[in-house]
Design a binder for these strands. Structure first.
Lengths: 224, 224
DNA sequence: CGAAGACTAGACAATTATGTCCAATACTAT
DNA sequence: ATAGTATTGGACATAATTGTCTAGTCTTCG
């Protein structure tokens, strides 16, 4: 009765999921992720997922020991995508601090390398699970440390590098309303101010212009 | 078996809730609010609430038509406490803009008039319910309009008043980790910067000093 | 071709939730 | 006191969810 509607598979070349279906462990994880993002961790339930995948509910237990086993895998998957992506961007070589910040900014504007909704969803989840909260805080420490190191590579003193790292990082999380259209545009406008206005200094005009051009380029589809 | 543990009642002079208990509609709402804050709306379930109140599950249906009826009442209660409190603070007369901002700041530091965790919880809830989201957005518009009007009363031009209002308001919501200890202190430190650094101007030193003194006074127990 | 392993469907059991109904009890006003 | 109302407890019905078990089907590989 239920239509198989897999939202995204690993390998699109695989046979379509109709008739006698076979799904992968990653298919279950992807559906779980979608539901986590849209409806919260409480709604990650086995029967609705199996309906969506078009397979029997009991097949789930071949791939996962239990619902908790799936949730653990989902959290692990989050760490290995979002946190890893942010750290990679922050650690990449850069010829100026503006260039470096632009690279980190990639994570805010390019959903393919960093999923903001996924981050929000995990944050919500963390409020209700000690284990997830511990993982989240550890990840945040790693992320901020990577950004701090980035500033330090561009000769900012340790304390100021940490302050700027925190502002740059938390700026991304200023809204927790995933449906709001405004956040991205608003964030982009505020980046130079947050980054340069906080300590009392101001950004050189050409750096602000660089930011604006960069944001526009990404929004119009280019990926510098 | 379950101990009756009402967390807070309307009228403490009432008989303690032991033995043959009678609870009020507000008791149910208070428990629902506590659970909403600590565990999310999904966990607001009737059986656990009745256990906590020490009454039978079916008694619930005397006070509320259904679970949804309770949730509607809970959302209504939120509007009539938090939003009303913030608007009241923003609308109160003030002899300077610093004084006015200090008054709004009351909502960040005094849990008795404005519950930040309650606000966070409703925000989470809104992500999963169109109805709640509509109410939340309407409330935010009302709040920001009140703060904007406050700045306008102190002779800020309309656009700048709106910008400052948004910053002052969203500053409160920069963190959505209700368990973190840091947010309050961090927010307090950043208030002057957010408020005065954004448009390129800077706060007079005496206003920053006023903020600091104000925050310290509240933290040490005084309520100016 | 045929067997072993990978994967799925469906039946069964246990738990927890919502909601209804009615009898029983406690409180209040006369 | 007692009648009437307010409030509660427990039985019943229904649905959703997790998990187990087993028989069966599909795929792959010798």
């Amino acid at each position: 009765m239920a239509q198989p509607i897999p939202l995204h598979r690993d390998d699109p070349s695989k046979a379509p999921l109709v008739g006698n279906v076979k799904v992968t462990r990653q298919d279950w994880l992807n559906v779980a992720k979608d539901i986590l993002i849209s409806d919260g961790i409480e709604q990650v339930k086995i029967l609705p997922m199996s309906d969506r995948l078009g397979v029997s509910r009991s097949s789930f237990y071949w791939y996962f020991k239990s619902r908790q086993d799936l949730l653990d895998a989902l959290l692990d998957h989050w760490q290995k995508t979002n946190t890893a992506a942010l750290v990679a961007k922050a650690s990449a070589p850069s010829k100026s601090i503006t260039d470096a910040v632009n690279q980190v900014f990639h994570c805010v504007v390019n959903p393919d390398i960093f999923s903001i909704p996924f981050d929000f969803a995990v944050r919500d989840w963390a409020r209700r699970s000690d284990k997830v909260r511990a993982v989240l805080h550890a990840s945040e420490d790693i992320r901020i440390a990577a950004i701090q190191a980035m500033f330090e590579r561009h000769d900012y003193p340790e304390i100021e590098a940490l302050t700027r790292a925190r502002i740059l990082y938390y700026m991304q999380n200023g809204y927790n309303d995933a449906d709001l259209q405004e956040p991205l545009e608003h964030r982009m406008k505020m980046v130079p101010h947050y980054l340069y206005g906080f300590t009392g200094r101001h950004a050189p005009q050409h750096e602000i212009d660089d930011f604006r051009a960069y944001c526009q380029a990404i929004q119009t589809g280019e990926t510098p």
